[in-house]
Amino acid sequence: MDEILEQLRRDVAAATDSKQVEQVRVKYLGRKGIITTLAKNTDFSRLSSEEKRSFGQRLNALKSEAEQLLKEALEKAKAAEKDLVRKVAGLDLSLPGIDRRLGSIHPIALVQMELEEIFQGMGFRVLTGYEVELEYYNFDALNIPPDHPARDMQDTFWLDNGMLLRTHTSANQVRALETYGVPLRAIFPGRCFRNEAIDASHENTFYQLEGLLVDRDISVAHLIAVMKTLLSQVFKREVTVRLRPGFFPFVEPGFELDVQCLICGGKGCATCKQTGWIELIPCGLVHPKVLEFGRVDPNIYSGFAFGMGLTRMAMMKFGIPDIRLFNSGDIRFYEQFPAAF
């Protein structure tokens, strides 16, 4: 019997596929198989009961050993055959994808969409005004009368019909107050224009986002808190801000809001010109005259306004070194900003 087992082991080892394994099974365990016939051909009557028991035990052991060997061989062969079939199919899933249809959204629009979401989450409605604006809303209603030196700060594109291309989105403040009244929380993203020479950091066409909040008893403390919350959302982390005096005729007091440099953490680096701070948002409490122009009683209501340079935010966010790229028309530039929604 040991010889039979040895022989079986050799045959199983020689079998290369499931078909041959089956043949080996038939050879040993088939109806006329070697093990099957071994039992049949034994004359049990000539054996003592002791011998009978011993023979039977050995035969059963042989049988189950053989079955086990064949089962394992069959599994191995089948697995090998599957592998072979799969290998023939030869899929290369490391190849890059095709049929991509994703275009790109203008980087300023991307920043605008993100900021709109943040502000809407803070209860600000989003309003748009006019790019061609009346002198009244762009200047006079913002407490910038004709011949005010502040008009120097903004070289204006004038139209032949007496209107102008708005120099700032602040032009929406009084329009919004007139239309929606108070209390009001609104932002005004949009394109602005100033007649200045163009270079890597100056454009005559750029985007701002103005914000306005008017309610009872609005204070400097509110302004700081809202700006801090906003900027933490924008930069996705806690930010440190500071206010310092800044002059804009339509706010009193007026501020420049600086954010502690996110690159160096305030230690001073090239980005913040070694100051540790980056000038980011001009803001202030709305000037009582502006409220009056908006038909709001400054004795009851107060508010704050702030302006963000959307173009500048986009330059910071995407590391764009040259402002002229935004209006360059060069798709090699625009394509770098996938349509991230």
């Binding site: 994703l102 275009g103 203008h106 394509e335 929604f341």
Partner: peptide, 27 residues
């Protein structure tokens, strides 16, 4: 803001589904 919503929807359709690149020109 219905107007802005339309603008952003247009961006998503054209850039998101049809491979358009958004550009900007002077006025």
């Amino acid at each position: 803001n219905v107007g802005l919503r339309k603008e952003h929807q247009a961006r998503r359709v054209l850039a998101g589904a049809h491979g358009f690149v958004e550009v900007q020109n002077y006025v």
